[in-house]
Amino acid sequence: MELPAAGRVSSEGAPTATVAEVRCPGPAPLRLLEWRVAAGAAVRIGSVLAVFEAAASAQPAGAPQSRAASGGCVRPARPERRLRSERAGVVRELCAQPGQVVAPGAVLVKLEGCSHPVVMKGLCAECGQDLTQLQSKNGRQQVPLSTATVSMVHSVPELMVSSEQAEQLGREDQQRLHRNRKLVLMVDLDQTLIHTTEQHCQQMSNKGIIHFQLGRG
């Protein structure tokens, strides 16, 4: 069970990350057996967050419970329950320890919603969420679904990244070029940096202007 988190929009119009509190489902207390995720891990919708079992009512809260009964007889194992995520995002905090008895409604995980910083043809590359389905469900919603607004590859316009990702990729590319001592010369050929003519051009003595002739023409 999750506490709904409303979406927010920054001053630039980009969605900001929201934090949802995943709570222990009811109606009875549950004992946390193990976490299936760690802080900082990315999860998808349906990912298993933790494994629980029903807690004995006589067992003190927080005390570890033995699986063996007196007399050497093994107590029948209680059925395990798996807590699955109802949203995609990143785990920010685990609020319970393995072996702990958790009351219904207690906060288990704080999950930061995915901002979908890399999108390819409507699919988030981080969490796998189909943003086209969300858009169809929330057609009237004014909050942007993704921070990916920058097209990185001209030949693949469906690939979009966030401005933060674009700036990071640009810095890494610049550092790589300087480290390898290889710079890129970008030449604009549409009469902006280079002007061409088929007629004779009188040499001008303007500083910074270089004249050259291609082929025999």
Rank of each mutant, 00 (worst) to 15 (best):
V143S: 05
D188F: 04
L94T: 01
R179I: 00
G105E: 03
E158G: 08
R87L: 15
R44N: 04
A63W: 01
A50Q: 08
V19Q: 13
P98K: 14
V153D: 15
S205H: 05
G128D: 00
T16F: 07
V153H: 10
A5L: 12
A5Y: 11
A96F: 03
Q133L: 14
Q174D: 06
E12V: 07
T149W: 06
A125T: 00
V109W: 06
E172W: 07
G62Y: 08
L111K: 03
Q174N: 02
C24A: 09
M1T: 08
P117Y: 11
S162C: 05
V43L: 11
S146V: 08
A88W: 01
R216D: 12
V91I: 14
H116C: 04
E164R: 15
L214M: 05
Q97Y: 02
R8V: 05
L33Q: 14
C73R: 15
P104F: 11
L145H: 05
C201I: 09
E21V: 03
V156H: 13
S136Y: 01
Q59S: 12
Q168V: 12
S205N: 06
G170W: 14
A58G: 00
G128W: 00
C73V: 13
G13W: 12
R23T: 09
Q65L: 13
A77S: 10
P60F: 01
S11T: 10
Q142M: 08
H116A: 12
L108M: 13
L193M: 14
A88F: 07
G113E: 09
L193A: 11
Q175N: 10
V74H: 04
V102I: 15
E164V: 15
F52Y: 06
L32R: 02
E21C: 07
G217Q: 07
R81V: 11
S163L: 09
R140P: 00
W35A: 07
L185K: 10
T196H: 10
Q135M: 08
Q191C: 14
Q141Y: 02
G71R: 06
D173K: 11
S66G: 09
G89L: 10
D190S: 07
G113N: 14
S115H: 05
A17N: 02
P117V: 02
E126W: 08
A20H: 15
R140Q: 03
V9P: 00
V184Q: 14
R179M: 07
A68P: 00
R36M: 10
V37A: 07
E53K: 07
A54C: 01
N138L: 14
G217F: 06
R87A: 12
K121G: 09
G72W: 11
L111W: 06
M204L: 09
S162K: 03
R140V: 02
L3V: 11
K182A: 08
V118N: 00
H195P: 00
A56E: 15
H178W: 09
S57Q: 08
L49P: 05
C201E: 11
C95G: 04
A69T: 09
R82E: 10
V9T: 11
E167F: 04
L214Y: 01
Q65Y: 13
V43W: 04
T197C: 10
V153F: 13
G217M: 05
Q199K: 15
V119E: 01
E2T: 04
G71W: 07
F212L: 12
D130Y: 05
